[in-house]
Every structure is written in C-alpha cells, then in structure tokens.
Design a protein around this nucleic acid. Structure first.
Length: 541
RNA sequence: GCGAACGUAGCUCAGUUGGUUAGAGCGUCGGAUUGUGGCUCCGAAGGUCGGUGGUUCGAAUCCACCCGUUCGUACCA
C-alpha cells in the first residue's frame, strides 16, 4: 500500500541533467531523425548500431597513472573488476567497431548511427547528461574529398530539417593550420603541448569573448565578471598578434571564393565577400596569404602550408559541387574539442537568433561538429586508419527549432472516444469501438498515420468523459445511451465544430439544449458516417 | 570546480521593522447541470514557507551549514 504519512512518502524526482520526453517531443524528434537518415542514405551511408557501454579503455578515459576512469563519464565495474563506461560520443565506439571488424568491412566504410550519449558534467539549460547524437563517418578514405563530402552532407541535413539557406552555416577549418601557426611562433614540440591546448581553448572562445577576450587569454590571463581569474597562455605580444591575425584575417575565406570560376559568384556570395572586405578572386595570390606584419615575421612552415592546401582543396570541391559561401565557409576560429582531430574540422552553426524559454534572444551557435581523426581507429591496430565524420546534436537542434516554433507546432489529433453511458453494457461499447477501429483504419496504408479509436476506461460520468475527450484533442465522441440502443441509433459529437459553435452560446440552458456539433445517425452506418466526418475535418484543416 | 543571486500551493507570485490560524490568480477536483466539452456561479482539496541546526518569549522573515535552481567562469575527452 502507498504510505499515508507524507514523511515516509518517496519523493518523485528526475535525476538532474536528465529529461523526460513527452509525446510531442518524441514525435518531433522522430521526424527529425527520419529526415536526417534520408540525407545520409542518399549519400550511400549504411546504418550500424553499437551498445551504450564500452570498456572504459576503448573510450580512452583512464586517468594517467590511475586505475579509475576519468570524470566526465559514467562508469561501473563488472564482476571481473573490468571498468565499463557509458559512451560519451558515437565516434569512439565506431572506431572500436571498425577496428574489431576491420577485415570484414568494405572500405572506405561509410556508416551512420543515431543514439543516446552520456556525459557526467554540470548540466544547464539545453545541456543534458543524456542526449541524442546522429553521426555519419567515412573510415578508410584519406582524401579531403571525404571531408568535403561530409561538409556538403551536413549542409544538406540542415536544409532537410527545414533550416533555410542563410540561417545556418557549415564552418570549416584545419587543425594543421593552427598547428602550423603555433609551430611558427615557437610552440612546437612535446614540451609545449600544454600551452598549445591553452591556445586552442582560447581560440575556441572567440564567439563568446570576442577578440579582446581571446587576446587576454593568449597573454597573461583574464578576469571575468565574477572576479574569477583565468590564467592565460602567457604568449608574447608578437606571438599573440600572429594568432589574432589568423583569427581576424578574411584571407582564408578567399580560398572558397577563389574556387569559384570568375564571375560566377552568386549575389549572396558577393555580399559576403563585400561585407568581409575581400577583394575579387583575380587579386588573390595563393602564396602570400598572410602579408601583414605579424605573421610574416615568422616562417610559414610545411604544416601550415599543408593545412592551407587541404582547406583550399575542400573549398574548391564544395564550390564545384554547387555549395556556395552562404552554406560552407572557411573559419579559422573553429577548433572543435581537443586531442583526437588531426586535420579538417567542421562545425554546423545556426546564424539567426533563437529565443529561449523566456523569449530572450540567444545566439544558439553550434549544433553539430566533426572532423578528421586519423589516429582513433589506429589505437586498436598499430597503424593509422584515416577517418572523418560529422556529429549532429539532435537534442540541441530540436530545442532550437522548438523555441523557434518550427517544430511540433501542429498538434496531433487525438483518438475518437467512445463514451460509456451505461456501464452494464460494456460489451456493446467495446464492440462499437472495435468496429470503428477496424473500419476507420482498413484502407490506410503503412505510411499513413493510423486513426486511433478508444473506449473510455475511467470511472467518471458523461461530463467528465467529454472533458477527457476534449483534453485528448479528440476529433469526435460517440455517445450511445439506452434510448439509442433501443432505437438502433448513435450520437456522434463533432468536438471541433461544437467548440466553434459553443463560443456564440451564452446561457448554459441554450448550450445544453442545442448540443452543438452533435448529430444522430443509424447504428449501421456508424463507420461510414464517422469516416465522413473525419474527412470533412481534415479538409477544413 | 570557483564566484554570485535566488528558493513560499501543481504553475506565477504577494506576505509590513521578527508577532495570532501563511494569502491571491491560474490550474486540479466536485456541485449548480443524476444523458453531454465551453461560459457563469458556488464549494473543496492542495503548504513540515527547500532541508538541518542556531538566535529569540516568538522565525517564511535574522545567522550558519547543506541541498536545489539560475547566471558568470572553468571543464566538455
């Protein structure tokens, strides 16, 4: 029995950072997943699924010099004492899967998968400890053509989700460019790994902190509003200037522009170039990308040049395939996570302002990302296996679209409700219900949504039953009492029509008398009449 | 993790310098209307005032710690 005293009563509460999903959310998400899946399959990717748990070592999450997994993952030990962890992304499990089945898979191996991932981090609005990702990856393709394809596919996905061209952008950068610059300013080598990380993290904050914030983080450090001090990378002025130049330069954008045959820029592209003060393609010299003072003091090295060439190639490929600057852009500030990316990195960002739950505008920013990770599969094999992929944050994107009203706006029609007036005749009501359920769904194909029909199962009277039907957003209710049973009739109540008519009725007596939207039909023509009513309602909507 | 603000009914919030029995609107349930959604009217349920301890004759109110939420910051492989 349930405890009567409140003291001992169990508190119903959701673990923090987790979310219940209700009908509307689930339907909306399923729609999104279907749309994304269609795009991935059009590119020839095939589905694969891996479990929620992996051995912790496969995720690479053991702390250095410790036999305990790192924070950030949910972990447990099985009875052999082996550490298992809930996956925190879909990339590491894919790498494990590919390595384990390497000989069997046709390479390049192209696969997609949607799934829940788990992060044991501080949750916040729009940040959960369990969320959905939808990934696509190509393993075994060293060419940047694979990276270019991923970018184009990401752009297609955004549009398939109903995000208009110009409302999103796929930003592309290359870790080698950043690595090359850091090398040039003397941050190369193993001993500077920590500082390189600090530099990358600083760059990653460009859109939030602005160029001055990044400058502080690259130098001595930065004090935030709460008075907390973040130690900087401690770079000298010239080094800082070189990195900032990379971030501010519009030159990388020229790569994409340049890939366009002369005179073929469309209007949007031309505007983007004008706004960024980028000269026309003719004026561009490939060789001298950084001609201003700071960076030119340092030697442009091979790492930088290689990254630069790869970006140029990607720009060329996407441009030739018809993906214009308003869809895919080079952006030198894109860093994307840490460690495992080895080359091109991508980020899918929304470019418009999204209102939050309180209606305040927020720049939503990144909803997905990816890049090349040539070393990840290799951890299991002893040789690098080239791989590149993209990961879409479905939950995050869904909440953006939801706040925007672009998702789940159309309310689902509820069930036809057969009310129960005379409880001694349950079998008759059940029969009517079954008849309607079969009859209304008989001709509906597998791609059409079914027509739900249910008998009221609660304990309440007529008034409450109709309230229930109303709340369920039922299109109509079926009412049969002893009078109707005797006469071989059925009352059908059109709840939508009734709602409309009721607005004009003032007194309750008149309301009761009129029974808006209700009509009587012969018992035999039940299915036919209800089908006709539903068809009428659909026609109006 | 660090810093700050906040925490009163399911929701949004009032609550005087510490003073009887903590209120409102919305929502929920019931009735007017025993066989009919809405409107209107009437009524009810619902609170250990986030928790624990302290100060006080007396605490929703003051203090300490804890928990939670939000914001900033760090981290986000």
């Amino acid at each position: 029995m349930a405890p009567k005293d409140k003291k001992n009563r169990l508190q119903a509460r959701l673990p923090r950072g987790f979310a219940d999903r209700e009908a509307g959310d689930i339907r909306a998400t399923e729609k999104m997943l279907a749309a994304i899946k269609r795009v991935y399959e059009r590119y020839g990717f095939e589905p694969v699924e891996t479990p929620f748990f992996e051995y912790t070592e496969a995720l690479g999450k053991f702390l250095p010099d410790e036999d305990r997994p790192n924070e950030g993952v949910f972990s447990l030990q099985d009875e052999d004492g082996e550490w298992l962890s809930l996956r925190y992304d879909l990339t590491a499990p894919l790498a494990r899967y590919v390595a384990e089945n390497y000989e069997r898979l046709a390479k390049p191996y192209r696969s997609y998968r949607a799934g829940w991932v788990f992060r044991n981090e501080k949750p916040g609005p729009g940040r959960f400890r369990q969320f959905l990702q939808f990934d696509a990856d190509t393993v075994g393709a060293p060419s940047v053509a694979a990276d270019a394809e991923i970018c184009m596919m990401a752009a297609d996905v955004m549009e398939a989700l109903g995000i208009a061209r110009g409302d999103y952008v796929i930003k592309v950068n290359n870790r080698k460019v950043l690595d090359g610059v850091m090398e040039a300013i003397g941050l190369g080598g193993e001993e500077n790994a920590g500082r390189r990380l600090t530099v990358l993290r600083a760059i990653d904050k460009l859109d939030r902190l602005g160029i001055e914030g990044v400058r502080e983080l690259l130098g001595e450090g930065r004090k935030d509003e709460s008075g907390d001090f973040t130690k900087g990378a401690g770079l000298g002025d010239e080094q800082v200037a070189a990195i900032l130049e990379l971030l501010e330069t519009p030159n990388l954008d020229r790569l994409v522009a340049e890939a366009a045959p002369a005179g073929e820029l469309n209007e949007t592209e031309a505007k983007i170039l004008r706004d960024a003060d980028i000269p026309p393609a003719d004026d561009i010299s490939n060789e001298v990308v950084f001609q201003t003072a700071a960076l030119s003091q340092f030697t442009i090295n091979d790492t930088f040049r290689q990254g630069f060439d790869e970006l140029k190639e990607i720009g060329h490929l996407v441009r030739q395939a018809g993906y214009t600057l308003d869809r895919i852009q080079i952006d030198p500030s894109v860093v994307r996570g840490l460690e495992y990316y080895t080359g091109p990195v991508f980020e899918a960002a929304l470019t418009f302002e999204v209102p939050n739950e309180k209606g305040e505008p927020v720049v939503f920013g990144s909803v997905g990302g990816g890049g090349r990770y040539d070393g990840l599969v290799g951890r299991f094999r002893g040789e690098d296996v080239p791989a590149t992929g993209f990961s879409l944050g479905v939950s995050r994107l869904a909440s953006a679209l939801k706040n925007l009203g672009k998702l789940g706006a159309d309310e689902e029609t509820g069930p036809v409700v057969v009310t129960v007036m005379d409880k001694s005749r349950l079998a008759d009501y059940q029969k009517i219900t079954a008849e309607l359920r079969q009859g209304l769904n008989k001709d509906r194909g597998p791609s059409e949504p079914p027509v739900p029909v249910e008998m009221y199962l609660g304990p309440s009277g007529m008034k409450a039953q109709l309230k229930y039907a109303d709340r369920r957003n039922a299109p109509c209710a079926i009412i049969v009492g002893s009078d109707e049973f005797e006469a071989g009739k059925v009352q059908v109540k059109d709840l939508l029509e009734g709602k409309r008519k009721a607005a004009a009725i003032e007194s309750h007596e008149a309301y009761k008398e009129e029974r808006p939207g209700q009509f009587e039909i012969a018992r035999e023509s039940l299915v036919e009449e209800v089908a006709a009513l539903l068809a009428r309602q659909r026609g109006e909507a």
